[in-house]
Write a protein that binds this DNA or RNA. Structure first.
Lengths: 132, 132
DNA sequence: ATCGGTGCAAATTATTTGCATGAAT
DNA sequence: ATTCATGCAAATAATTTGCACCGAT
């Protein structure tokens, strides 16, 4: 029986302690763009003794090791996204929900024509309401 | 002798107290995308007795009254921008400097073709190095 | 016993709240 | 004297740091 989360952590030089595995099992597979606080709530369901500081440290470690990306999208709190490929983000202003928008769904023209601004990466941040 | 900052505050139903005028004289005309802390430092040069809480409250009031926009661009701190027209932002990863990019310098295609995502506003956030 | 890695209590940073004070009627 | 706006001390929220503990040598 293999445990893919543990394999992933090892592949990135992260010792798979119980706390790190519990955080990884949730945050490496979610699409809800959680803040550290949300990760804490979710992970406590599986590991009630974990502390918020350990969640922060684990998230920062995952970012450093290239498993997660941290995003400044919501005011006042950093959110985390396990999707590493370039993509855009849509923010529902009413609910705060953040949705990934595939890279190819939009096209941005003239990124290389901005004079002395040498662009290494970019994303479009969209806001509005999700109909459903 | 007219004082344009005071006129602007009055035009937006903001009582021009000395603290608000001092904050406004800086933040309504700057292009440096300051955090609250930076505003505090700049304003203290003119009004050494002002407190950081008053700076925060004044910035939030200006945002509420439509004089400023607050932006989640730097991790962990909100920054403020007096430019209200739609535009994009370039962030210099080395220095943290944020530069406005005119709306017409870029073109984003297919914003209205995202299915159930009804886009009310958007901006491109670019990162890289400014050459000079 | 020593050392490197781990997790969390405590500290720090960022921001908001609530109330004392003063100006206008 | 009552009301309402104002500004800041104190409180709260968000995140980081530093050290005690534990397992491997």
């Amino acid at each position: 029986m293999s445990e893919p989360t543990i394999d992933t952590l090892r592949a990135h030089d992260i010792h798979p302690s119980p706390q790190r595995v519990a955080v990884g099992r949730y945050v490496l597979y979610t699409d809800e763009h959680p803040s550290a606080e949300v990760v804490f709530d979710r992970v406590r369901a599986a590991l009630p003794t974990i502390s918020l500081a350990t969640v922060y440290n684990t998230l920062n470690l995952f970012v450093e090791k290239g498993l997660l990306r941290s995003l400044a999208l919501r005011e006042g709190r950093t959110v985390f996204d396990p999707c590493l490929e370039p993509h855009h983000h849509f923010i529902d202003d009413e609910t705060g929900t953040i949705v990934d928008v595939p890279w190819d769904a939009l096209e941005v023209k003239n990124v290389d024509g901005l004079g002395d601004l040498q662009v290494d990466s970019y994303q479009v941040v969209l806001r509005g309401k999700r109909l459903s």
